[in-house]
Structure formats: C-alpha cells, structure tokens
C-alpha cells in the first residue's frame, strides 16, 4: 500500500518547484541573476535588490505557490471524492462563486470596509455555492448529479459576474471585474499573502486529512461506508476545505481555471493511481504549473500583462490533451 510507482516523486517535485520559484524571482522589468537572488535570500545583497525581491516579487511568488498548490490539491480531492476525472473546483462552481463573492464585494463597495471583507465574501461565495450544490444533489450523493448541479451553479455565478460587468459604472471597474474572471497575481503585496496563507493552510489541512476515505470511495459509497468511512463528515470536511481554501485563493488571484483539472491527471500515472497517492504530488504540481505560468506571463512581451488563467489554459491544455490521448484506454 501507499507504494508510489516513483518513490522519489514528491521530493523531486518539491525540489523542482522550489528551483522554479527561485528562478521566477529573477524575472521582471529589472532582471536579477540567480547569484544576487541567493545573496538576498541569505540575508546579504544590496538594498535595491532586496526591495525589488522581498517587497515586490516574493509576495507574487508565494501567492503563486499557495494558490497553485491549493487548486491542484482541491482538484485531486474532488476527482477522488466524485470518482470523476472531470471534477475540479471550477466545475463544481466553487471558483466562479468565489469570484462572484469578490466581485460583489467590489461592486457594492463592501471591499472598502475592511481588507478582510473581500476574502470573506469570496469564501462565503464558495460556501454558498457548494452548500447549495450538496443540497441540490440531495441525499443521493451521486457524483453525476453533483457535477451537473455544479455546472448549473457555475454558469449562474458566471452570469452574475457578467451582469456586474454590464452594469459596472465605468471601464476601470469593468477591467477590475474582468481580472477576477481570468486570474492574475501581478502587483501583489505581503498583505495579500497574509490573506491567502491562513485560508490555504486550513483548506489543505481539511483536504489532506481524508486521503484514506477517498481511497475507500474507489469502491463506491456502500463500499466506503462498509470500510468505516463516515460519509456525511467526509462531505462536510471536504465542503469546508474546498470553500475556505479555494475561496481564499480566488480572493487574491481571481478564478484560475484548468490547474485543478489538469494537474491530478498529469500526476496520476506517476503514482499507484489511488486517490490518496495523488494528493501531495497534485499540490506540488499545481504550485509548479502556476509558478511556471506566471513566469510566462512576464516573459511574453505584450502591452498589457497577459492574464494568468489564459496562460494556464494555453500551457496546460495541450499537455493535458496529449496525455489524454495516451491514457484513454484506462478509462
């Protein structure tokens, strides 16, 4: 049990992710070579380098890692729970509903009351969506019902965001709302890190706890219950974990698609394919994919910085399709 096909997968992913993250610090209008990055990180280096790296680029890097890890993990957990390779936070409406919460906070000016209002509204959005979802799907807990209800909730949230876009008083407000739809982590500060960190920590703790229960669900609901899984509690932990984690992540980055869908698929063949075995790799893989995408955002020359959700889709979808064509016989 718990034998990974590649025992070094998690350490290797961790090292690659850390290296890419450090490299990403060097990218930007002022290019800083690795030697000077290391000097700053070890407490030396000159003041300008330190200001650029610590105050401007480090928060962005940390947010990229945290949000990516959260989305990757949430995708892996939802695919395991719903026993469906299509599941991910945005398919269930969690991402769009969180974005709607954030947009609502901006649109009605609630965001100005307190810095915590926007993430709270985002989490509330995700909670309401997932709560409604599980209520709609009823007692049956049939995975297909949940996914269909999720698409309905997701579409409704998207429609409401578009409505806010239509009714927005000026083009700047519209631009800001657009950012929530496509996702971006440019110009983030440590304030944002402190918002996302606790949410993601709570979300991850709740989601990582249930790996074994997800394995049991490979045998269906009766199978899992006869192995001692308390399904209502599992569902509650999962609901809270996804809502708080993804809600908090979306509150600082906007709705970034595809990571939760793609990363677990890329990781699964490298493990023994049990739901619990892909949790940690998906977490690290999500962090890696989002960080790499954010580097591309900065490298590709354009007048406006590209939106992150666009790049994750461009980067992830071809890899995903290639992988799907190779793997399809297994489904």
């Amino acid at each position: 049990m718990m034998r990974h096909r590649h025992p070094a997968l998690v350490p290797a992913l961790a090292i690659i992710t850390a290296s890419v993250a450090i490299l990403s610090l060097g990218l930007g209008p002022v290019s800083i070579p690795v030697g000077r990055i290391m000097a700053v990180l070890t407490g030396h280096g000159d003041a300008i380098d330190r200001a650029i790296l610590i105050d401007l680029r480090l928060p962005r890097m940390l947010i990229g890692l945290l949000v990516g890890a959260m989305l990757g993990l949430a995708g892996a957990v939802l695919q395991g729970y719903l026993r469906n390779p299509l599941a991910e936070p945005s398919v269930l409406g969690a991402s769009n509903a969180a974005a709607l919460g954030a947009v609502g906070a901006l649109y009605f000016g609630i965001a100005q009351w307190h810095i915590a209002m926007l993430p709270i509204m985002a989490i509330a959005g995700a909670l309401v969506a997932l709560g409604a979802l599980f209520f709609l799907a009823g007692e049956s807990e049939s995975p297909l019902t949940l996914i269909l209800a999720g698409i309905a909730v997701s579409t409704l949230a998207l429609a409401c965001i578009s409505l806010a876009l239509n009714l927005s008083p000026n083009p700047f407000a519209a631009m800001e709302i657009m950012a929530w739809l496509l996702g971006s982590i440019e110009n983030r500060s440590f304030e944002h890190v402190w918002i996302v960190l606790p949410c993601v920590a709570i979300g991850m703790a709740l989601l990582l706890y249930d790996g074994r229960a997800l394995d049991a669900l490979s045998l269906g609901e009766d199978g899992a219950r006869s192995l001692g899984v308390d399904l209502p509690r599992l569902r509650l932990r999962l609901l809270l974990g996804v809502a708080i984690g993804v809600g908090g992540a979306v509150a600082v980055s906007g709705s970034i698609g595809f990571i939760g869908l793609i990363v677990p698929h890329l990781m699964r063949p490298l493990t023994d394919r049990s739901p619990s075995a892909i949790l940690l790799p998906s977490m690290l893989g999500g962090a890696l994919l989002l960080t790499a995408s954010d580097m591309l955002v900065r490298i590709i020359p354009s007048t406006n910085e590209l939106k992150l959700g666009v790049v994750t889709a461009f980067l992830g979808v071809p890899v995903f399709l290639a992988h799907l064509l190779r793997e399809r016989r297994l489904w």
């Binding site: 026993r83 192995l227 899984v229 023994d272 394919r273 049990s274």
Partner: peptide
C-alpha cells in the same frame, strides 16, 4: 472499482 488500482493496492483497501 472507480480507479485502475493494482490488485495488491485494491486488496489493501480492506485494511482501511
């Protein structure tokens, strides 16, 4: 069985 687990891994689910 919803995921293509190995036989040994599947039997191991009994230990949950």
């Amino acid at each position: 069985l919803h995921w293509p687990l190995s036989v040994e891994r599947l039997v191991g689910l009994g230990r949950l």
